[in-house]
């Protein structure tokens, strides 16, 4: 529709038709699942794209591909104009600095035998070349920035001596220590209490403003996606179901899956009775046909079972994949 508008602010990450397959143990012949199926997305500089979808929808897999912890089966990932699959050796290391990932479990990603200080000291030294007093000052600054205070007490502690929220802050500090441009934050708050969750979201928001960072924010909580994300992308069964600006998506969801997700979120106004909802996960097998949401969709027709709905821009920046998005009749 309006190409010109989209390109206005500069693009940092551009993903085109990303496909990721994994082998699965089948009986006899080798089988594959395709948990990420032709996904395209764009993240602008300083933008937060929230990636929402239920467990197993492929969110983490996309995140891992973006920071090159995983090599895609097909498709292109272009960051700052360069295809990242071309990076090797030193260039790959450099790329891994600009793109950092914060993992879901704050404890699993920390080293239990290293002090808090050394978690950030090493990257600051190695990647940013800090030494001596400047290094010391930088460590202090960074820990203050993520709210790990009093610094003098905390820097000598070990991960097990921190609370869940403090551990997640440390993971963020460590990601920042290499001075990245882009952070994949994979459910960074789902293990935390509400009171601490809010603090982490606030922190990531402040850092976005201070450092001009871009984020891919992975979550299954629409409320926090709306709070932190500029735009929200909804994923189901490895496919993009809908993308829109956060406010627009919450106010005017078009895809039946988005509507279901919204209705299920505490605090939502729409009341859909889910008492008899099946808990059947989507089919991820290679070569599956039609829309991934057919098993649970109330609007399903034969067309949905045969043909994958294409992404269609319905309004400026509001894109949806559904054969029947115009239909109002929705009962689950």
């Amino acid at each position: 529709m309006s190409e010109a508008i989209v390109k206005e602010s500069s693009t940092l990450v551009q993903v085109e038709d990303l496909v990721i397959k994994f082998p699965v143990r089948g009986k006899g012949e080798k089988k594959f699942i395709t948990p990420v199926d032709r996904v395209s997305l764009e993240i602008k500089k300083g933008e937060v794209l929230a990636l929402v979808g239920e467990s197993g929808s492929g969110k983490t897999t996309i995140g891992r591909a973006l920071v090159r912890l995983l090599t895609p089966t097909d498709g292109k990932i272009i960051v700052e104009g360069k295809a990242i699959d071309e990076y090797k050796g030193k260039a790959l290391n450099e790329y891994r600095q600009t793109a950092q990932m914060i993992f879901q479990d704050p404890f699993g990603s920390l080293n239990p035998v290293k002090t808090i200080e050394s978690h950030v000291k090493f990257p600051l030294k190695k990647h940013q070349g800090y030494k001596g007093e400047a290094l010391d000052q930088k460590i202090t600054d960074l820990l203050v920035q993520v709210g790990l205070t009093p610094v003098n007490e905390i820097r000598k502690k070990y991960p097990h001596e921190l609370s869940g929220g403090q551990r997640q802050r440390l993971a963020i500090a460590r990601a920042l220590a290499v001075n990245p441009q882009f952070i994949v934050a994979d459910e960074p708050t789902s293990m935390l209490d509400v009171s601490i969750r809010a603090g982490i979201l606030q922190l990531m928001n402040d850092l976005k403003d201070d450092f001009g960072l871009s984020y891919l924010y992975i979550t299954h909580d629409l409320a926090s996606a709306r709070y932190f994300g500029d735009r929200i992308m909804v994923l189901y069964g490895g496919r993009v179901m809908e993308i829109a600006e956060s406010k627009e998506l919450i106010k005017n969801p078009l895809n039946p899956y988005t509507k279901l997700l919204l209705a299920a979120t505490p605090g939502s106004e729409s009341q859909i009775d889910l008492t008899n909802m099946t808990n059947e996960p989507p089919d991820l097998t290679e070569g599956r046909q039609g829309c991934p949401f057919v098993h649970r969709c109330p609007l399903v027709t034969d067309l949905c079972k045969e043909k994958v709905p294409a992404l269609e821009e319905v309004e400026d920046g509001h894109v949806v994949a559904c054969h029947h998005y115009g239909s109002q009749a929705l009962t689950f």
């Binding site: 009171s195 809010a198 606030q202 409320a223 605090g267 939502s268």
Partner: peptide, 24 residues
């Protein structure tokens, strides 16, 4: 009140949230 203010709301216009400072 701290807990109430820490929850991001899905639909309210105002979207600022605040955490509870300090540790358990």
């Amino acid at each position: 009140e701290g807990l109430i203010n820490a929850i991001p709301h899905l639909t309210a216009e105002e979207v600022t949230i605040t955490g509870i400072p300090g540790n358990p």
